[in-house]
């Protein structure tokens, strides 16, 4: 359960004067990186929940699938950029098929069934990945131009991490822009706020849900393949991030988009700072304790707009 994002930050802190500040700044930067990846990943989770009222336990498996697909595409001789585009498209298609073939069967069932079903799907996808060789760690090298380290005074960060953060932020901004300004986004937001009323207004929930699950899967896969040079790729790499994403969506409030945006960075910071000063396992426990406290005081998340039904 260790997100080894901060190992470099710790090493960096040991040099030069004012090392306490350098360590803290370096941790903050890494927190932003982790937060961005987490945001990209949990936005799909939030959308699928918002429109379909499904807490997708298979989201972590889709992350792993994306990471592995990207690593395999790259290792079969294609460039990193092709992997970065092809893997999300591929997994997005998988998501579309899963929603059409599996999730559509339980649309009107009680909530319990959707939890169990996606849990089963997570096991199934993990099993398939194992079978395809996902037991072994696969490396994905970042492209040539992004392999260096960017140094600013005593502070430094691998260039690739900056790229990942920028990519994640750009993708999330584009998504939010579309949600705000397109016809499709309008329907999503309507269904998110009130699925029944949305259906009354003539929104086709089936096709909308297909698009949302496909998009959510593609975003998870994009997060997976973009993070693969940092976390490496294997069949259960998504398990770690899934737990963090769950914490994110609960802190932000289930179904709340802007809540997820803030919560992703909060979780990223807590994890990275916790790891830097206290050790990885303690960080997770700290985060969980904080979340329990949040639930007592603000059970609907940061903006008070989380679902309670």
């Amino acid at each position: 359960m260790l997100i080894s994002l901060t190992l470099k930050g710790r090493a960096l802190g040991a040099e030069g004067p004012g090392e306490g500040i350098v360590l803290a700044l370096s941790l903050a930067l890494n927190g932003l990186v982790l937060g961005s990846i987490l945001l990209l990943f949990s936005l799909g989770l939030t959308l699928i929940y918002g429109v379909g009222r499904i807490v997708n336990f298979a989201h972590g498996a889709l992350f792993s699938a994306g990471a592995l697909a990207g690593a395999w595409i790259a290792s079969s001789g294609h460039s990193f950029w092709i992997a970065l585009v092809a893997a999300p498209l591929l997994i997005g298609a998988v998501g579309l098929v899963l929603d059409w073939a599996v999730l559509a069967r339980i649309r009107d069932r009680p909530m319990v069934d959707s939890l169990l079903l996606t849990f089963g799907l997570a096991l199934l996808i993990t099993g398939v990945l194992y079978q395809m060789g996902g037991r072994n760690l696969t490396m994905l090298q970042p492209p040539q131009g992004l392999r260096g380290t960017l140094t600013l005074g005593t502070l430094s960060l691998p260039t690739y991490r900056i790229f990942v953060s920028a990519l994640a932020v750009a993708a999330v901004a584009a998504l939010l822009f579309f949600l705000k300004n397109s016809n499709w986004g309008l329907r999503i937001r309507a269904a998110n706020d009130d699925p029944e009323m949305g259906a009354c207004l003539g929104i086709d929930r089936e096709s909308l849900m297909h698009s949302v699950v496909a998009l959510g899967a593609a975003l998870a896969a994009l997060a997976g393949v973009a993070a693969a040079p940092i976390f490496t790729a294997y069949a259960t790499v998504g398990d770690k991030i899934l737990i963090l994403a769950f914490m994110t969506v609960i802190l932000g409030g289930l179904g709340s988009l802007r809540g997820a945006v803030v919560a992703a960075y909060v979780v990223g910071m807590i994890i990275v700072f916790g790891e830097g000063y206290l050790g990885g396992q303690v960080a997770l426990m700290l985060l969980f304790g904080m979340m329990m406290a949040m639930l007592i005081r603000w059970p609907r998340g940061f903006f008070g707009e989380g679902r309670t039904e």
């Binding site: 169990l116 089963g120 096991l123 996808i125 099993g127 398939v128």
Partner: peptide
Amino acid sequence: DAWLIYFGGLFVVIVI
């Protein structure tokens, strides 16, 4: 050794 596939698949089938 593809146990997890059968397990997950069975899970899905039973829930549906």
